[in-house]
């Protein structure tokens, strides 16, 4: 209606897809990394680095693609640091990931305040210039389809890219030898050695891919969806990504579904918060007396409930988090 969405359902679907894009993108990267045996709990930090780098690069150059590219590159560079420490330095992956989170939090805050000082000294605005952010792109022709058009084909470029990436990665994992290599790396590195697949290089590349995805997801948050940077603006989304990869039992379909589910829950609670005022329904009216904190809690409680109902034990990739080559002790 007002946003160009015919119905509430259409809006909910559109917003879910839009808001879940960074989760999906970072999730796909993390999934590939974990399939090769590298668990990077620093994904939150990588996203945050993506946010700040995308914003500053885009603002400084005035080019949106520079921001996106720089974010992906920065994500990869940070992931390379992590992977180097973990794969060649043989450090514990969890500890290194936690350190990466802390590093990113401090670094992004520092960079942002330096950037603001810099702008203040030069008398510049810290706002993102008009052309430096991405806008929604309606796919010609398709965006006029009923329901599907406004939901699926009026999104950000990175959404389309993520969708393609999801399908592509699914295809790669299912039908190509590269997919076999990825899964073998995390499941049985001994087999990879016997097959002549370089274990550490493979894992390194996967970690880089994960970093690139996370960086781009950060860019999505800062220069696409909000055109802003804020301290700690990822707000725990990286941790949700980790959870969703487990939730999806290391498979791409369930992972994407999980991201959409979580995104939908958040949209739903925000819509509920609104409709309790705007709809003249006695039930909705009764909802007004519910403290808003319970609405904010809703996605997390619902996710817990879903897990409790659906969860089944899945061990995950066998070599997940283990160093290679393994030491005797």
């Amino acid at each position: 209606m007002s946003l160009g969405h015919e119905s509430l359902a259409e809006f909910l679907c559109w917003q879910t897809l839009s808001a879940a894009t960074p989760l999906m993108l970072a999730g796909i990267g993390e999934l590939v990394g974990e399939l090769t045996g590298v668990i990077d709990i620093g994904i939150e930090g990588l996203m945050l680095i993506g946010c700040i780098v995308a914003y500053t690069a885009a603002a400084a150059t005035g080019q949106a693609w520079m921001g996106l590219g720089a974010a992906a590159a920065a994500g990869m560079a940070s992931a390379a640091l992590f992977a180097g420490v973990v794969l060649w330095g043989r450090a514990d992956q969890i500890v290194a990931g936690a350190a990466l989170n802390l590093l990113a939090l401090g670094l992004s805050a520092t960079l942002w305040s330096l950037y603001q000082n810099h702008c203040a000294n030069l008398g510049l605005s810290t706002h993102l210039p008009r052309g430096a952010g991405y806008d929604l792109v309606a796919v010609p022709g398709l965006s006029h389809l009923p329901f599907i058009g406004p939901v699926l084909f009026d999104q950000y470029t990175l959404f389309y890219a993520t969708l393609l990436l999801a399908v592509g990665i699914w295809w790669v994992l299912r039908f190509t030898r590269l997919g076999l290599m990825i899964r073998a790396l995390g499941e049985s590195p001994e087999t990879c050695v016997a097959c002549g697949i370089p274990v550490r290089l493979g894992r390194f590349l996967a970690a880089l891919f994960a970093g690139g995805c996370a960086g781009a997801a950060g860019a999505f948050l800062s220069i696409m969806r909000t055109k802003a940077f804020a301290f700690d603006m990822t707000g725990g989304q990286g941790f949700m990504v980790l959870a969703l990869v487990i939730f999806g039992r290391w498979a791409i379909g369930p992972l994407v579904l999980g991201c959409l589910f979580f995104g939908a829950l958040n949209s739903l609670q925000q819509i509920l918060q609104t409709t309790r005022y705007t709809l003249a329904d006695p039930w909705m009216h009764a909802l007004r007396s519910v403290p808003f904190e319970f609405f904010q809690m809703l996605p997390y409680v619902a996710a817990l409930a879903a897990l409790a109902l659906l969860s089944r034990r899945h061990p995950g990739p066998r070599a997940l988090g283990q160093p290679w080559p393994q030491e005797v002790a």
């Binding site: 948050l221 909000t226 707000g235 609104t274 705007t278 904010q296």
Partner: peptide
């Protein structure tokens, strides 16, 4: 009608989706 909602100080993405929900409901 005045709808109220709370999000977070430092998550622009959340505020955006809340504002979208508002606008979708006809709030102008």
């Amino acid at each position: 009608t005045v709808a109220q909602a709370y999000t977070s100080w430092d998550q622009p993405a959340l505020s955006r989706s809340q504002a979208e929900a508002f606008i979708q409901q006809g709030i102008d």
